[in-house]
């Protein structure tokens, strides 16, 4: 039983880490601010959720598990809110979303020079 729990938590940890690296790479690769919101949200929810779940399996029941759940719930509420607030502030500041047809010539490298 112990081994099953360990292997399961290792799988969760590794997949969470993979999501985080993919999210960070997405934030580097995507052309525009509004498209980068997606991988940032991806890392906050999926990556964090899997890693915290993996840690939860390793933690013996008690205060440690409760704190992990607190962190998970906290991230669940704060990261979408901050992503939304950033997007609204960007829109209010007049940052126009990048459209491919706008600058076909700049479609190769990042759109918003």
């Amino acid at each position: 039983m112990e081994l099953v729990l360990n292997v399961l938590s290792w799988l969760l940890l590794l997949s969470g880490a993979a999501f985080i690296v993919i999210g960070a790479f997405g934030m580097w690769r995507l052309p525009d601010f509004y498209t980068r919101l997606h991988p940032a949200g991806l890392t906050d929810t999926m990556g964090a959720g899997l890693i915290l779940l993996g840690l939860l399996l390793q933690a013996e029941a008690g205060m440690v598990a409760i704190k992990l759940l607190i962190i998970a719930v906290l991230l669940l509420f704060t990261s979408p809110t901050s992503g939304h607030a950033t997007a609204r502030a960007a829109l209010a500041a007049g940052l126009r979303p990048w459209q491919a047809k706008d600058d076909d010539k700049a479609m190769g490298e990042g759109g918003d020079k």
Binding site: M27, F33, R36, T43, D44, G83, T86, A90, K113
Partner: peptide
């Protein structure tokens, strides 16, 4: 390039 990219990156 824009300040909001920086805010997003720092949040991440």
């Amino acid at each position: 390039p824009t300040i909001f990219d920086r805010i997003l990156a720092v949040n991440s």
